[in-house]
Each structure stands twice: as structure tokens, then as C-alpha cells.
Design a protein around this nucleic acid. Structure first.
Length: 106
DNA sequence: TCCTTGACGGAGA
DNA sequence: ATCTCCGCCAAGG
């Protein structure tokens, strides 16, 4: 598989997102050194094993919204995990101004 | 090989 | 703020 490497780089970035912070798919791609691959990041996240230890819930879209249908199971799980870290959603959106990860190492 | 489908994003209107 | 349209990459049919 040609992109096993991309996937791995995305994992590495996601693993670094600090507790209580969030990053957009595009941001993860950039920090992974692969600008423009936001969509690929999304696909990678969708393929994560259910029992992954990665903080996948800290990755949301650039609008501050959870990229799952509002009534889906995934939406609920992600929202719960975010709120558990003190990241609240207002009108279905995370306030990026306050929670966006600066990309610097913890 | 072509076409469609996504946990995307940005520019316009 | 909302809605299209278009560009992107990778996987699967």
C-alpha cells in the first residue's frame, strides 16, 4: 500500500494533540508535512480500530464541527469525549479560538 | 481505467 | 451565517 506512510504520519500528529485541545483535519495534515491532505486524514480516522488509544476525538473539521451526522452514534461518542475534557460545544460547534491546538509539542 | 464516495477545506455568492 | 461549487487524496466497485 502506497500510503501506509501517510497514515502513520497522521497517527503521530494526532497522538500529540494535548488533552483539552483540538485540531482540524487540515491542520493535522499540515503538521504531518502533507498539506492539502485533509480528506486523507478523515479517511485514516475512519479506519482506526474501535479500541485505538489515539485521541481521535480531538480531531474535528475546520468549522469547529464534529464530522458525523448530528444523530449518529459516532457524533455522540465524540461529543461525550470532548466534553469530558472540558471542551464544550456551543450551537454544535467548538470554539476554535479557545481550543485550537497551537501545534507546539506538549 | 473510469466513476463514486467520503470523519475535508476554501472561495464565492 | 448558509449554501454551492470545486479541488484533493485514497479506496472500492
Amino acid at each position: 500500500m502506497a500510503n501506509q506512510e501517510h497514515q502513520q504520519r497522521f497517527w503521530q500528529v494526532v497522538a500529540q494533540i494535548p488533552y483539552g485541545k483540538v485540531a482540524s483535519y487540515g491542520q493535522v495534515a499540515e503538521l504531518a508535512g502533507l498539506p492539502g491532505l485533509a480528506r486523507a486524514v478523515g479517511r485514516t480516522m475512519s479506519r482506526l480500530p474501535k479500541d485505538t488509544s489515539l485521541p481521535w476525538h480531538r480531531v474535528i473539521n475546520a468549522q469547529g464541527r464534529i464530522s458525523f451526522p448530528i444523530d449518529s452514534d459516532g457524533y455522540k461518542r465524540q461529543r461525550e469525549r470532548l466534553e469530558a475534557e472540558g471542551i464544550s460545544l456551543i450551537n454544535g460547534r467548538v470554539q476554535m479560538k479557545h481550543y485550537r491546538w497551537d501545534g507546539l509539542a506538549e
